[in-house]
Design a protein around this nucleic acid. Structure first.
Lengths: 198, 198
DNA sequence: GAGTAACTGAACTACATGTTTGTTTCCAGA
DNA sequence: TCTGGAAACAAACATGTAGTTCAGTTACTC
């Protein structure tokens, strides 16, 4: 017993309507009528699928993040310094494939809960990597892992947002991931072109 | 003719009510009545000061950012790699002094416009520093300045948000700024405790 | 092809918004 | 200290959106 075709159609319509409308006019000013009209769905139908606007957004987002998590399964991080290698590239590729929805999420639309969940999960994962690393190498981290994780994830997301918002894509996903990797290894002085320390 | 004492009082009340309520319950669910009740101000008075909730938030934020800009005047950045030295410390000190309002802004409350303005201004400033630097040293940046600026500002803001949300303050502003400076110079491998490259 | 589940349209309540008005209170400048 | 004017007030009003309900129609699954 597969899911009813009608419900699939309706959910897709609502999803697409929400995403396109948010990109056009922002989440806050949208009315449920706006969404149902764009989706060509009756008002009552909307409420049979979700409690309200936020709920719709949450569901749509949850689906996407689950998809990402699935894509991340089995992609080992060979760099061992917090999500720098293949997983990062996988994230960028996924984001490119689902560009509009990622833009909506990364803008912190809605009440910002989806974005917070996204970042917080990432921070948790990355912080764990940092801690584990300091155990296996037997060296003390020179900066608190929690702080380090926040910095790194903040950097990733800011760059990802920027990359997705540009219109001709400034560079392919591979190059973007590579830039971030280099930055992580060598620091910003190196990246900005100087030869020595400040 | 200084500003009427009554308007000062009213504006302060509205400001404080907004900030405390947003911290308690988030911006989206707040009603104008909630704000005016907490501020102990008549509904009509609210509308004689601002068009709506968002407008109030915008004004409050604009005041704060202007204050910050004033504080940044005359504080030269001796590191020349994008807002890493004294200006960063100045930002952290100001944020600590106005903790609650900063938390509200950095959470991206409202329509997120204040936060966007804040970050975009910072990015512009920092990108300019990177470009200028590559001119004076005569070396080519190894990573696009725009990307570098996004990464750096994203890192700053993520860390600042984290720092302000912790309850016993994890470290003084000086130490935080110092950590970020070191991270910028040496990169994340160094910071996480390893001795060599990956 | 039949039974069931999803969609529809319309009506209705509840509530927040933003505006208006006439009145009262309080400030600033003389 | 007085006074004109500005600000705050309470209350009522029109408007529009949020959710809910239900009887009737459509279309999917088995």
């Amino acid at each position: 017993m597969a899911e009813d075709r009608r419900t699939r159609r309706t959910r897709r319509s609502l999803r697409d309507a929400l995403v396109s409308l948010v990109l056009e006019r922002g989440f806050a000013t949208l009315t449920v009528d706006d969404i149902t009209e764009r989706a060509d769905v009756a008002r009552a139908t909307f409420y049979s699928h979700c409690r309200d606007k936020d709920d719709l957004f949450t569901r749509v987002t949850a689906d996407l993040l689950q998809e990402l998590a699935a894509g991340l399964e089995g992609v080992a991080d060979e760099t061992a310094v917090g999500f720098t290698g293949k997983p990062l590239l996988e994230l960028f590729r996924h984001a490119e494939a689902e560009r509009d929805l990622y833009r909506v999420i990364l803008r912190g639309e809605g009440d910002g809960k989806p974005l917070r969940m996204f970042t917080d999960e990432s921070v948790t994962r990355v912080a764990a990597v940092f801690r584990e690393r300091s155990v296996t190498t037997g060296t003390e981290p020179r900066i608190e892992p929690e702080l380090l994780a926040r910095a790194w994830v903040g950097e990733q997301f800011a760059v990802l947002r920027w990359w997705l918002e540009q219109d001709p894509r400034p560079m392919p996903a591979e190059e973007l991931a590579d830039n971030l990797r280099m930055l992580a290894v060598h620091g910003r002085y190196w990246a900005s072109g100087s030869d020595g320390a400040p």
